[in-house]
Simulated scan of single mutants.
Amino acid sequence: MQVQKSFDHTGGILYIVGTPIGNLDDWTPRAKNAFETADVIAAEDTRHTQKLLNRFGIRKPLISYHEHNRHTREKELIDRLKQGETVALVSDAGMPGISDPGEELIRSAIACDIPVIPVPGPNAAVTALVASGLPPQPFLFLGFLPRNTREREEVCRRWRRVEATLVCYEAPHRLKAMLQTVLEVMGDRRVALARELTKRHEEWLRGTVSECLQWLEDHPPRGEYTVVIAGWEGETPSMDDSEETAWWQSLTVIEHVKHYLAQGETKKVAIQRTAQDRGLPKREVYNLYHREQD
């Protein structure tokens, strides 16, 4: 067990500094002060962070800390912290440690009894959640879903019957594929898609997954998206009917229907049984199946 007295300490300190996710006016005086008092700023992209420093007239040395150099940089930064230096950790936008390698440096600092002090700032996940129109609590943050289709389906199946609102990030070129997986595995749920949060071209899509997919056909995705997905609204599964023990857990909705068709069931019965297995409305399974056939 460790006890950290954040403001009663001499020696090195690791500050986790939140930075704007778009609008620079969202930067706080305390975050600016953390930059000014730091001996070095560890940034995901030094060129990006340099623009923020220039905007506020701050001159501090920058050191890159990102996915590809985190192992070598981590040792260097921990050594500097042990020598009594103050390090400010930042990502390109929002709070460090969320969907970036900062979490590893934070764990290492804690393991070395180096104080880790958060300086709160903007966060895209929470910003999108509170304005989504969906229940803000409980919620579950999933980060970026896997790029691989099969792995993405497995993640969606894992969280399909969780009643919490789900929040994730997605790049524009993968958005439609991700939403299609959500539609097939989780059903046609209510969602909110937030694009370019706090920036001039901020845009929201609120509706069902299928409605958003239709919109995106005529309006190609642009910019980074935060996706908020309604939680499970069906009956709570019993221990005997858990997702982990369901024989169909590795199948998509379409594959599930085809399984019953291969057993000789009529299309109507196959759709009905699939809907019963998954706890989905029959109409939803019907629409998914016929969209695939068309």
Rank of each mutant, 00 (worst) to 15 (best):
N123S: 13
R59L: 12
A125G: 09
I117S: 04
R189I: 11
E244L: 12
G279T: 04
T19P: 02
I110Q: 07
I254L: 08
V209S: 05
H219C: 08
Q83W: 04
A31N: 02
Q263I: 13
E170F: 11
F139R: 01
H71F: 14
L205N: 03
R206D: 03
D25R: 15
R174Q: 06
N54G: 06
I98R: 09
T266G: 06
V126G: 00
L251E: 00
T49I: 15
I254C: 03
R273H: 07
P138S: 05
M95A: 00
T252E: 00
E154R: 11
L14H: 12
A192V: 11
P136I: 11
R195H: 10
R291I: 06
T149D: 00
A230R: 04
L175G: 01
I254E: 02
M95C: 03
W27D: 00
H48I: 15
L24E: 08
T46H: 03
P135Y: 09
R195W: 15
Q272Y: 00
R157H: 14
I16V: 15
L197W: 06
A164E: 09
G234F: 07
H68W: 14
P96M: 07
L175R: 03
E85K: 12
L24Y: 08
P237Q: 05
W215M: 08
K199C: 04
